[in-house]
Simulated scan of single mutants.
Amino acid sequence: MNAERLVRRMIDVGALRFGDFLLSSGKRSRVYVDVKLASTFPDILEMIADGIAEKLSGVEFDRVACVELGGVAIAVATSLKLKKPLVIFRKEEKSYGVGGDRIGEIRKGERVVVVEDVITTGRSALSAARRVEKSGGVVGAIIAVVDREESGREFMSLLKLSDLIKAYDSFDTTKS
């Protein structure tokens, strides 16, 4: 994966924004990384899936997992790329239809990789990991497209927020 090319495309499509934003974690930030928007572009989504596949090359696992909504496109692309089945955890258990807290299954002892779009506190990713374990699976890795570097933990990621900002500064030709 070419990280510079991925960053450039994310910047081109407006996935890196500056202002005052309330994040899903409840934190406020001057920088917003919209991986959901970026992943609506096939070339970017393919670069993300390629990058995740590359990062996971040494990790043995049986299934890809994510939490709706941010991780879904990424998990589907990774599932297709690596030919691994997928499970999507719902944010809330559904009481209608067939119900449940997920789409897909986790078999006892399966090794599962949790994918995320952006990690800030890690709360969502760690929640998914606990749900994998509660289902009888084993978490092989947690990987995000972007780690905002605010969790105090090391997560596997394609990009760090600090790298995105540096790249933005170097690509932005409108600054003097």
Rank of each mutant, 00 (worst) to 15 (best):
D117V: 01
P85L: 07
E54D: 14
L126M: 10
F61Q: 01
F89C: 00
E110L: 00
V76A: 08
D62E: 04
V112G: 12
A125I: 01
V115R: 07
V118I: 06
K94I: 07
F61Y: 03
S79H: 00
V67S: 13
I52G: 02
V59W: 02
V98I: 13
K83Q: 15
I106W: 05
G70I: 13
V76N: 07
V76I: 14
G71V: 08
T121N: 07
A53E: 07
A73M: 04
F61C: 05
D117W: 01
V72D: 12
A128S: 12
A73E: 13
L56W: 03
T121M: 09
A73G: 09
G109L: 04
A65H: 04
V114N: 05
R123K: 15
A128I: 05
R102L: 01
A128H: 02
Y96C: 11
A77N: 11
E54G: 09
E54F: 09
V87M: 04
P85Q: 11
E110N: 06
I106H: 00
G109I: 04
R102A: 08
A65E: 01
D101Y: 05
G97V: 08
A53Y: 01
K81E: 08
S124E: 14
G97C: 10
K83L: 09
G104T: 01
S127L: 09
P85S: 12
L86P: 00
L56P: 00
I106C: 01
T78Y: 06
R111M: 02
R63A: 07
E116T: 00
S95W: 04
I119F: 04
K84A: 02
E110S: 06
V115T: 12
K94D: 05
R102P: 02
E105M: 13
K91N: 14
I74D: 14
L56A: 05
K94L: 11
R123W: 08
E110D: 10
A73H: 08
A129G: 06
R123F: 15
D117P: 02
V118G: 01
G109P: 07
C66L: 10
T78I: 04
V115D: 13
V98H: 05
G100T: 13
D117N: 08
V98F: 12
V59Q: 02
V115N: 04
G71L: 10
E68K: 07
E110W: 01
G109N: 14
G70T: 09
E93M: 01
F89A: 07
L69E: 14
V87F: 11
V64E: 03
K81H: 07
G100V: 06
P85W: 10
V87I: 13
R123C: 10
A53N: 10
R130W: 08
I106K: 06
V118L: 11
D62C: 14
V59R: 02
G99Y: 00
A77Q: 13
P85E: 10
C66A: 14
D117L: 02
I74Q: 05
S95L: 12
F89D: 14
G71R: 11
I88M: 03
K81F: 05
L126F: 07
A129C: 09
R102N: 12
V112R: 01
T120S: 15
I106F: 04
R123H: 12
E105Q: 14
K84I: 07
S57C: 03
G71N: 11
V112K: 03
R123M: 14
A77V: 00
K91S: 15
E54R: 06
